[in-house]
Amino acid sequence: MHELLREAGPVVHLSRYDVFALARYEEVREALVDWQQFESGAGVGLSNFRKEEPWRPPSLLLEADPPLHDAPRRVLTKVLGPRALHRLREGWAADAEELVDAVLEQAEFDAVPVLTEAFPLRVFPDAVGIGKEGREHLLPYGNHAFNAFGPHNDLVAAGAPRVPELGAWVGAQCAREALTDDGFGAAIWAMADRGEITEAQAPLIVRSLLTAGVDTTVHGLSAVLYAFATHPGEWQRLREQPGLARVAFDEAVRWESPVQTFFRTATTDVRIGNAVIPDGHKILMFLAAANRDPRRWADPDRFDLTRDPSGHVGFGFGIHQCAGQHVARLEAEALLTALARRVERIELTGPTKRHHNNTLRAWESIPVRLVPA
């Protein structure tokens, strides 16, 4: 489908939803960078906030443009900066070693619940500063948030009954008193105390971390584990060069694109090639199609650690580029380094199963055997 979209032209009208689609790398990247003509403030899903009421208060980061976007983005960039990640590195590496030790006691297991869900649910909520109880709500809440970008289908309907319960729990975790005093959440509230953001903005910024910071990393880790299970030569390359762990994660994000799509809205009549996207129309950017565009990438359907994957749009681009991407990379580096040290081969032991989501390319099950080194 992505190939058909790319070959149809630089912009394609999807008549069923009356949206304009971009699937080639150059056009997708330009739209991501040009926030003036392709706004996020009207929603990054199919719903148009100019005409419809959002199901929850809009994200101060994803669903806002300058100047409203500026202060929250500055705060999150500081909170998730190099100093904070340096402080976490050693502890996350130890957590990863401990988890790998435990899974190596099992002959065969499902890598999704045991590794790629377990590790982010272990380390990331700790870093934010939320309690242990109720963390199982994070994945279904994030899953519904990404489904709700649309279209409104059976996936949205299936998640809707739990929205009040999940939303209330997540909202409660964002309150100052619910957070430890040494995590990302407390740092965000401290910036509210200093006047860098308002007190009303602080819990919404914490919520952004909890909404977008777990599912996406889980599916990115699943993608890289699946890639290595199906490309044993690349796994040996990583074992010989452990410093390639971050390259491997970025190449997996390019190759699989855990976040497949995002929407923008035209703020004026926008010309792309010979077509004009009318003011107020939704634009669907196929990030995954752009990440495998042969105009940009050589042999794009291959997972390849000799490739430089920088420039992929799996984390977005421009001012709305994923603020937590370095956190995800650190999680991946910790887990892959621990695995590469201890595991000779990663082998699939049965059929894999996808988890369907309107926005995410996700995994339900990846049955594996880890052959110890």
Rank of each mutant, 00 (worst) to 15 (best):
H2K: 13
A298K: 06
P10S: 06
N274P: 03
A157D: 12
T230C: 01
F149Y: 15
V28I: 13
V33S: 11
N153Y: 05
L60T: 02
Q36F: 09
T349P: 00
L121I: 02
G195H: 05
R176D: 00
D301G: 14
D250L: 11
R345S: 06
G233H: 14
E331L: 15
V44F: 12
L348W: 00
V276K: 04
L179K: 05
H320I: 01
A245F: 12
P164Y: 03
G324H: 03
T217D: 07
E7A: 10
H355L: 08
L287R: 04
Q36A: 14
K51A: 15
K282E: 01
A158S: 15
L209V: 06
H219A: 01
D95K: 02
L88F: 10
I197T: 05
A157H: 12
D301E: 14
P232C: 12
L305V: 13
R135W: 11
N274Q: 13
F303Y: 14
T267P: 07
N147M: 04
D193T: 00
A157W: 14
F184D: 03
S47V: 12
H356E: 15
L88C: 07
P372L: 06
A168S: 04
F286S: 01
P72I: 05
K132T: 05
F119K: 03
L166D: 09
Q106T: 09
R296H: 04
G171R: 11
D65W: 03
V33C: 04
P294F: 09
E333V: 04
Y141D: 03
D126Q: 08
L32I: 03
A107T: 14
R135P: 03
